[in-house]
């Protein structure tokens, strides 16, 4: 058969981010990626900055450059990212090891899938992440001081 011209209909990065009206697990997946990348970026800088304490430079304490409100707020965002990534991570470990997706069933319309099985776990993890974030907010936003 002669080689015919084709159009590659691969969605590309848009396919990660959207590409349609997707469900809550899709958004959880995107947010997990974004928060992971954000935490990693912070973590790599954090290693360098905190390592400088060995030479006596405490750049994050009062009166130093990283103690400014903008960096404090940035840290708060990282904390929020951590809260999400950690609790969603607990769900992912359980789900991806096949522990929270249920056993195979007879598919009867309207279909119930593993998504329905793990949904309560997803909701409870998000509630816990919210509570954890709230606890940290008191510290970051200076409430209660």
């Amino acid at each position: 058969m002669a080689e015919m011209k084709r159009h590659d209909n691969r969605l590309g990065l848009w396919g990660w981010l959207g590409g349609g009206r997707w469900g809550v697990e899709r958004h959880a997946y995107i947010l997990h990626r974004l928060t992971g990348l954000a935490i990693l970026l912070y973590f790599l800088m954090h290693i360098v900055v905190t390592s400088l304490r060995a030479s006596g430079k405490y750049m994050w304490i009062e009166g130093h450059v990283l103690h400014q409100p903008v960096f404090r707020f940035g840290e708060y965002l990282v904390f929020a990212a951590f809260a999400y990534h950690a609790f969603n991570g607990i769900r992912l470990v359980l789900v991806e090891l096949g522990l929270a997706v249920g056993k195979p069933i007879e598919p009867i319309y309207p279909y119930k899938t593993s998504l329905n099985v793990q949904r309560p776990l997803l909701i409870s993890m998000m509630v816990l992440a919210g509570i954890f974030l709230l606890l940290g907010s008191f510290e970051f936003l200076g409430v209660g001081k």
Partner: peptide, 23 residues
Amino acid sequence: CHYAGECSRVCPKGVDPARAIQH
């Protein structure tokens, strides 16, 4: 697979590929 769950959501036969992949 990172369990975005779309395959299971769209499957017209209720096969639930996401469940299969996690197992």
